Simulated assay, not measured.
Amino acid sequence: MGDVAVIVPTMRRPASLARALASMFGQTGVSERLDAIIVVDNDPAGTAAETVARLAPESPYPLIYRHEPRPGVATARNAALAMTGAPLIAFLDDDEAASPGWLAALLQARAVTGADVVFGPITGRVPDGTGWPTPYLERFFGREGPAETGLIDHPFGCGNSLMVRATALPGAAPFDAAADQSGGEDDLLFASLRARGGRFGWAADARVEEFAPAHRATMRYALARAFAYGQGPSQTAAKAGHPWEVLRWMAIGFAQTGMWGLAAVALTLIGRPSRADLMDRTARGLGKVFWMKGFEPRFYGARELARLDRTTPVSPSTA
């Protein structure tokens, strides 16, 4: 029996899920370590069951299906954790495809650094015809870090990560379900880990590709996400009960909004593609200022399900 399980949350993305799972079946150097691949289906209709059943005979590792009908990113991850007792947990999003040495590189980096959480690089991919924002969007959906494996000062997002369960994922439900609709459950998790003295690592060779779907590969979506990312520091300080820290982040946000907002307007007037990066920084600044409830964008859970219902209704044959 291996000591690591890979969790793949999904919601009504059969082709993308199949690509993610195929990349897991092709992992090298982990045959003695990989205990199971767990797919948690967050669609109330359970539409991923057919994809998992179809691909199960191709999997060199146990492929476990868990249906969690309550839509929400944190709830889905907690449900998957309940399906395994593995001491190491890796996360791969359903819109990602891992390189063959991905998991081995994460495991090696954890062994070298002793970190509680290890992250890897992501190459962002957007559909053809995205237009002038393409370079920015590829960076937005991607992730880069140090050229060498080692300890790092700050965490990244949960996708493409390896966590030590005992220290990074305490309790039966370590992800806060209050973040089910907006995301940010990993920010809260990592802030708590940092407060307990946890360490973060970087696996330079653990690369995945992330394929942004067309409805997300837009400036509107990216800036809404940037705004939500900007809310993170202020929200974390507020939850920790540090009002002066909240005020400090709000002051930083005011300054960023003014400085980068004016620069973005100037570049927009002359049609420079680099305005996208300044618009991103402006949105993050605004998020630090408007971090309160009522300003939180909704990207997951019921909101995403409603969008899918409008664009890709589920027929009885696929439910």
Score class of each variant (00 low, 15 high):
residue 105 A to N: 11
residue 119 F to S: 02
residue 201 G to P: 02
residue 285 G to S: 10
residue 154 H to P: 01
residue 245 E to Y: 00
residue 222 A to I: 01
residue 84 T to M: 07
residue 164 V to D: 15
residue 15 A to W: 07
residue 181 Q to F: 00
residue 246 V to E: 11
residue 227 F to G: 01
residue 268 T to A: 14
residue 194 R to T: 10
residue 98 A to W: 03
residue 79 A to L: 10
residue 88 L to P: 03
residue 125 R to T: 04
residue 120 G to F: 08
residue 275 R to E: 06
residue 234 S to K: 07
residue 162 L to C: 08
residue 31 S to Y: 01
residue 186 D to S: 10
residue 256 Q to I: 03
residue 107 L to S: 07
residue 58 E to V: 00
residue 109 A to Y: 03
residue 288 K to W: 01
residue 81 L to S: 08
residue 138 E to Y: 03
residue 247 L to F: 08
residue 98 A to N: 05
residue 229 Y to Q: 13
residue 24 M to G: 12
residue 154 H to V: 11
residue 48 A to R: 00
residue 241 G to C: 07
residue 71 P to I: 06
residue 279 M to Q: 14
residue 169 L to D: 04
residue 28 T to M: 06
residue 5 A to V: 09
residue 169 L to K: 01
residue 317 S to A: 15
residue 2 G to Q: 08
residue 181 Q to N: 11
residue 183 G to W: 02
residue 277 D to A: 13
residue 59 S to H: 10
residue 198 G to C: 11
residue 220 R to F: 00
residue 191 A to F: 13
residue 140 F to V: 10
residue 80 A to P: 06
residue 41 D to A: 08
residue 14 P to F: 03
residue 8 V to W: 05
residue 150 G to P: 04
residue 46 G to K: 07
residue 142 G to P: 02
residue 13 R to D: 04
residue 49 A to M: 10
residue 314 V to F: 01
residue 265 V to E: 13
residue 175 F to T: 02
residue 20 A to D: 01
residue 47 T to W: 04
residue 88 L to V: 03
residue 283 A to F: 06
residue 257 T to C: 10
residue 56 A to Q: 13
residue 151 L to Y: 08
residue 59 S to T: 02
residue 249 W to G: 03
residue 192 S to D: 15
residue 52 V to E: 04
residue 187 D to M: 09
residue 121 P to T: 09
residue 300 Y to C: 06
residue 30 V to T: 06
residue 110 R to D: 02
residue 290 F to Q: 04
residue 144 E to S: 12
residue 203 A to F: 04
residue 162 L to M: 08
residue 86 A to H: 04
residue 100 P to D: 11
residue 319 A to I: 05
residue 175 F to Y: 15
residue 289 V to D: 08
